[in-house]
């Protein structure tokens, strides 16, 4: 078993499932011969040919709209939107067609598609290439939003997305595309969606995050452990629909919760988690719910990016504030 990066795990899952399921089509800009600008679809065109791996013209709405038609016809489109910053023209098709086709035809037509896109900041890219707008999609009923945080999860969750009968947005945190390697076995086992993953167990405080921020969150947990604090670290993974049960159970145990997100603070997924915990587990809380998030500003250009992104220090500060409360 080779140790592979997250992007290689995406590639592995795609190749693996495309061999099993002929209805899967991969298309988008530069995904064919070039293998994708991040090499996510490397080698797929050579393996599966023109009819299953297609380079499209440069038109995101078209890519998404095509997926709607193909999915209604029984294919499993796996389009790539090259960057989340470019998804907005496709947003129309995703929100007005893909999300609701099953509902408006009362189950007659469905949309088993997986839309992949790299998202998030931290690679010093030009403007518009670093946003985290997962909350916009999570807010639309009928969609699912899945974010892997490491190569193992990228493989298992992507398989699950590919097999899901409903439209899934598979957001890949590009900052950690190659940061870490895992030994991933190509065993075709899909991970469960709508389920959180627990990466560390402890009694004193719960840290919840997803995507690239899991990296910083786990580093913060290690620091806290040096102070004798034990930490429950939870990876949400499926942002919508979210598994609240695991988070509730953890808060019941620790009484303290800090949510870490790269996306802007207001109206983000952290807000939803905080509201749910306050509603259902108020009696378990020993301190207010803390949030570490990006600022409510436009994502800065590369020079200021480092000041925007939540760091291990910011997480530690917030965690300690919550630990020390009352």
């Amino acid at each position: 078993m080779d140790a592979i990066t997250l992007i290689e795990a995406v590639n592995l899952a795609l190749a693996s499932e495309m061999a099993r399921d002929e209805s899967i089509l991969v298309f988008g800009e530069d995904v064919g011969l070039n293998g994708g600008v991040f090499r996510a679809t490397d080698g797929l065109h050579a393996k599966f040919g023109d009819d299953r791996v297609m380079d499209t013209p440069l038109a995101e709405a078209m890519i998404a709209g095509l997926s709607v038609g193909l999915a209604a016809q029984g294919f499993k489109p796996v389009p790539e939107i090259q960057f989340m910053g470019f998804v907005f023209p496709a947003f129309n098709q995703i929100a007005t067609a893909a999300a609701r086709m099953r509902n408006r035809t009362r189950g007659r037509l469905s949309q088993p598609m997986t839309i992949r896109m790299p998202y998030g900041g931290g690679i010093h890219a030009p403007e518009h290439h670093s946003e985290s707008t997962e909350a916009l999609f999570a807010h639309i009923p009928g969609l699912k939003v899945v974010i892997p945080s490491n190569p193992t999860r990228a493989y298992g969750l992507l398989l699950a997305a590919l097999r899901d009968p409903d439209p899934v947005l598979f957001l890949e945190p590009k900052r950690v595309y190659r940061l870490v390697k895992h030994e991933v076995e190509d065993n075709g086992e899909a991970f469960p969606l709508e389920t959180c993953f627990i990466d560390r167990e402890g009694d004193d405080i719960t840290l919840v995050s997803w995507g690239a921020m899991m990296h910083e969150t786990l580093l913060a947990a290690t620091e806290l452990e040096k102070d004798g604090v034990t930490v429950d670290v939870i990876d949400v993974a499926t942002i919508a629909p979210m598994d609240m049960g695991t988070i509730f159970e953890s808060v019941r145990k620790t009484g303290r919760l800090v949510i870490v997100q790269e996306a802007p603070r207001s109206g983000g997924i952290g807000s939803e988690i905080a509201a749910e915990v306050a509603e259902h587990e108020i009696m378990s809380l020993l301190a207010p719910i803390g949030r570490v998030a990006g600022y409510d500003t436009v994502m800065p250009y590369a020079k200021l990016e480092g000041q925007y992104m939540p760091s291990v220090e910011r997480i530690l500060e917030e965690a300690r504030r919550i630990l020390d409360f009352s």
Partner: peptide
């Protein structure tokens, strides 16, 4: 292998922990 920016490349091989309380 990125059309914009610079993607950090790391060599550390990590493993998900398989034990629990």
């Amino acid at each position: 292998a990125t059309v914009v920016g610079a993607v950090m490349v790391g060599n550390t091989v990590e493993k998900e922990s398989a034990v629990s309380g």
